[in-house]
Write a protein that binds this DNA or RNA. Structure first.
Lengths: 211, 211
DNA sequence: CGTTGTGAAATGATTCACAGCT
DNA sequence: AGCTGTGAATCATTTCACAACG
């Protein structure tokens, strides 16, 4: 369908911000928006917005701006969130549970469909309609349901081992909450959330003048 | 003490990764490390590592490498985590509670010392020794305890308003979990964690070849 | 020797500025 | 008139390559 698409990393990171803003504008009934306005709402310049959009096609109407509806659709399609992704959660500790019940996933195109843990006291309990299953079941369930994305919320010590097993089961993207750099094969995506690192960035900004 | 320090943003982001790795190496008893090894462990080139360290001084010994101990100390000092930062948590929902009890903060230089919420059913309950207080108390407690960092884990609809109140109370850095861009005055740091965005990045990487 | 520290070169991203479309 | 799309210019970051050093 699309030939060969190369999106610079910074542009890729901004895409979800554009989408978030555009969905809000659509909700508010706005039909079209120009690059300057959209940029101002997100803290970018108009030129930045236009360059970003130009990487994946030509949409704007000179003198008018961009169709909010069309842009939403196109960005969702590029990000792959025009469909719903099934997600597996590994680790039913506090973070795993909080994320499993996170209410904003579903209208953004993600649906938690399975939860795994190794703690015998937790296995079998129910979280939002899903029985917590032993991690040993991962290898069976993930290919069976053709799950591609996983959320890894386990202790640092076992994170790499479980990541390996996820990849072996067919997962192509891991959202990692353990403060460790996961080694994964080429073609597998990892996106990490490290609460301590985030706080450290704040401490640094507060300590040094300009970063 | 230091004259005027300018750290490029990408370097700043890598600093906490260096620290994490170096602490592990120190723990393992390693005395010195060279830029190539350290880089390999984190996925950077040796030149990158040396340039990064060069932004804040001259440490390495040609022919030998860097003192793990010295480097840890220096990076911590620059990041401001050679002391412990008191942190306030706003929002005692699932995410707020998970983060309040997150066990890895303390040895990274952060300590949750107060929790606020507005839900009458939650106010007064106890989480890890801390009574959940009404948000109205923020304005009093934060200056009183001289708290600089806050974790904001509240619904999108009230995030901006609470951010304003945090800033007014003297907070200089906010770790934001709400999927919204917070508007804050110059000099106030914001670092955001958006679970949906993180998953979207993975979906995008899985959909497109190279980002 | 092996490894740092650093100018110089290469790459990458952002901003400028304006021709051209509606 | 107003705003897009985009080459050209600027700015930032990374990589190269090597002299200097312990």
């Amino acid at each position: 369908m699309d030939e060969r698409l190369r999106i610079p990393k910074p542009t890729a990171r901004r895409l979800s911000l554009y989408l978030r803003e555009l969905e809000a504008l659509k909700e508010a009934g706005l039909v079209s928006i120009n690059s300057t306005q959209l940029g101002k709402a997100l803290g970018f310049t108009g030129a930045q917005v236009r360059k970003d959009f130009a990487t994946f096609g030509t949409f704007g109407r000179p003198g008018v701006g961009y169709s909010v509806f069309h842009l939403c659709g196109t960005i969702k399609q590029i990000m792959g969130t025009d469909r719903t992704w099934d997600v597996a959660v590994v680790g039913a500790g506090k973070i795993g549970l909080a994320i499993t019940t996170y209410p904003r996933f579903i209208d953004r195109g993600f649906k938690v469909v399975a939860i795994f843990d190794n703690n015998p006291n937790i296995i079998g309990t129910t979280v939002t309609n899903h029985k917590v299953r032993p991690v040993a079941d991962m290898t069976r369930i993930i290919p069976l349901r053709d799950i591609r994305l996983a959320i890894l919320a386990v202790p640092v010590t076992v994170a790499q081992e479980l990541a390996d097993r996820l990849v072996a089961s067919g997962i192509t993207g891991i959202l990692n909450f353990a403060p460790v750099r996961l080694r994964v094969p080429d073609g597998i995506g990892v996106s990490s959330v490290d609460f301590s690192r985030s706080l450290e960035q704040l401490a640094l900004e507060t300590s040094i003048d300009f970063c």
